[in-house]
């Protein structure tokens, strides 16, 4: 018997996911379920597979999925192209956002938003409606409007790049946002702005996965669940108190297998 709770359908279900790159196995059997309205934190030492998991979910083709399945809102995610995953509502916040000189933020976002609308059989935004949307979201995530007038990430500081990820997230309104080490390299002010953005965008119909190395980010984005990823597997899952324990004890006890 399955017991369904109101408002909490399974948005994402990962079963026994294995993935490798150049024959080297990185993910060795991930199992994870995420429901709408939840915030999950994935923590773990360097090289444990956190970023690989994020990239595989977003459809990065350099990784080979060798086993397992991922169901996203009833669809087999692994069969979809990266762009279709995005249009279905997956968003990856990059650890190292890419600089694309010559592509303006406006044309980048306009293309992205309108392609998603086309996918959903909605008409494209007019230029004025689109610019209005840009302005709204710019204010919401407190990103400097000067940045949105420039080429994508070109010459942006580390903090500006991360703010720009959150801005793109606000524009695309994903169902599942996966933020890969969004806190790395951020000063405290930028961290606050980025976290505020994430919190403002959170609602009962979407979910967030925060991948982080440090507990600090979780002071701002409070998770419902914390998972520890080590050696390509989730070795421990618990409530937010697990993050504090990691902060105190480090990762050595995980590595020694004391879980």
């Amino acid at each position: 018997m399955f017991l369904f709770r109101l408002n909490t359908y399974k948005m994402l279900k990962i079963v026994d996911l294995h993935a490798n790159i150049n024959e080297k196995e990185i993910l060795r059997g991930i199992n994870l379920e995420i429901k709408a309205g939840e915030v999950h934190a994935i923590m773990g030492p360097n090289g444990s597979g956190k970023s690989t998991l994020a990239a595989v979910l977003a459809g990065r083709e350099i990784f080979n999925v060798t086993k397992g399945e991922v169901i996203f809102n009833g669809k087999n995610l692994l069969e979809l192209s990266p762009e279709d995953r995005a249009r279905e509502g997956i968003f990856l916040g990059f650890q190292y956002p890419i600089e694309i000189p010559g592509v303006s933020m406006v044309s980048f976002m306009k293309t992205a938003v309108n392609e998603a609308r086309k996918y959903k059989n909605l008409p494209a935004y007019s230029s004025s409606d689109f610019l209005k949307l840009m302005r709204e979201k710019t204010a919401l995530v407190e990103i400097d409007s000067k940045l949105t007038n420039r080429s994508v990430n070109e010459g942006f500081s580390g903090g500006e790049k991360k703010k720009n990820e959150i801005f793109q997230m606000a524009m695309l309104e994903p169902k599942l946002a996966i933020l890969d080490e969004t806190d790395s390299g951020l000063d405290i002010d930028a961290l606050r702005i980025v976290s505020n953005g994430v919190n403002k965008l959170k609602n009962k119909d979407n979910a967030t996965v925060v991948i982080t190395h440090y507990q600090r980010l979780l002071d701002y984005i409070v998770p419902d669940f914390v998972h520890i990823l080590y050696n390509g597997r989730i070795v421990k899952s618990s409530g937010k108190e697990l993050a504090l324990e990691l902060e105190e004890r480090g990762y050595d006890w995980i590595k020694k297998g004391e879980v």
């Binding site: 977003a58 459809g59 990065r60 083709e61 192209s81 990266p82 762009e83 995953r85 995005a86 249009r87 968003f91 990856l92 990059f94 956002p97 890419i98 694309i100 000189p101 010559g102 592509v103 044309s107 980048f108 293309t111 992205a112 392609e115 998603a116 996918y119 080429s151 793109q168 695309l172």
Partner: peptide, 20 residues
Amino acid sequence: FYLRSRGISEKEARFLLLYA
């Protein structure tokens, strides 16, 4: 990949990069 991960088709993403 960055462009595709935002929902831009591969064809359009290639075009945007070439144009840039």
